[in-house]
Measured scan of single mutants.
Amino acid sequence: MSAKKSPEELKGIFEKYAAKEGDPNQLSKEELKLLLQTEFPSLLKGPSTLDELFEELDKNGDGEVSFEEFQVLVKKISQ
Rank of each mutant, 00 (worst) to 15 (best):
M1P: 00
S2Q: 11
S2R: 04
S2W: 04
A3S: 04
A3C: 14
K4N: 15
K5N: 07
K5W: 00
K5S: 09
P7Q: 15
P7C: 10
E8Q: 13
E8C: 01
E9H: 05
E9R: 02
G12A: 12
G12Q: 07
G12H: 14
I13N: 00
I13T: 03
F14D: 00
E15R: 07
E15N: 08
E15A: 08
K16E: 04
K16S: 08
Y17H: 06
Y17T: 01
A18T: 03
A19E: 05
A19I: 10
A19K: 14
K20C: 01
K20H: 07
K20W: 02
E21S: 05
E21D: 15
G22W: 00
G22R: 10
G22I: 01
D23G: 05
D23R: 08
D23E: 07
N25A: 12
N25R: 06
N25W: 01
L27I: 15
L27P: 00
L27G: 00
S28R: 06
S28D: 13
S28F: 01
S28L: 02
K29P: 13
K29N: 15
K29Y: 15
K29E: 03
E30Q: 14
E31V: 09
L32R: 00
L32N: 00
K33P: 05
K33M: 14
L34K: 13
L34E: 14
L34Y: 10
L34G: 13
L34I: 12
L35A: 12
L35V: 13
L35S: 02
L35G: 01
L35T: 03
L35Q: 00
L36C: 05
L36Q: 00
L36S: 01
Q37R: 11
T38K: 15
T38F: 11
T38D: 15
T38S: 08
E39G: 00
E39R: 01
E39D: 03
E39W: 01
F40H: 08
F40C: 07
F40I: 12
P41T: 11
P41D: 10
P41E: 02
L44H: 09
L44Q: 08
L44D: 13
K45T: 11
K45V: 09
G46V: 10
G46W: 05
G46D: 13
P47S: 15
P47H: 06
S48I: 12
T49P: 07
T49F: 13
T49K: 05
L50T: 10
L50I: 12
L50Y: 13
D51E: 06
E52T: 14
L53D: 14
L53M: 12
L53Q: 13
L53S: 10
L53F: 15
F54I: 14
F54P: 06
F54H: 07
E55K: 08
E55F: 14
E56K: 06
L57S: 12
L57P: 10
L57W: 13
L57G: 04
L57T: 08
D58M: 09
D58G: 12
D58K: 11
D58T: 12
D58L: 14
D58C: 09
K59L: 14
N60E: 15
N60Y: 09
G61E: 15
G61K: 07
G61D: 05
G61H: 03
D62M: 04
D62T: 08
D62S: 14
D62R: 11
D62H: 08
G63L: 04
E64C: 13
E64H: 14
E64F: 07
E64K: 09
V65C: 07
V65P: 01
V65I: 12
S66E: 14
S66T: 13
S66A: 11
S66K: 06
S66L: 04
S66Y: 05
F67G: 03
F67P: 02
F67Q: 14
E68Y: 02
E69W: 02
F70V: 03
F70D: 00
F70P: 00
Q71F: 04
Q71S: 12
L73A: 04
V74C: 06
V74T: 13
V74W: 14
K75Y: 03
K75F: 03
I77P: 03
I77E: 03
I77H: 03
I77L: 06
S78Q: 01
S78T: 15
S78L: 02
Q79R: 15
Q79I: 01
Q79G: 15
Q79N: 03
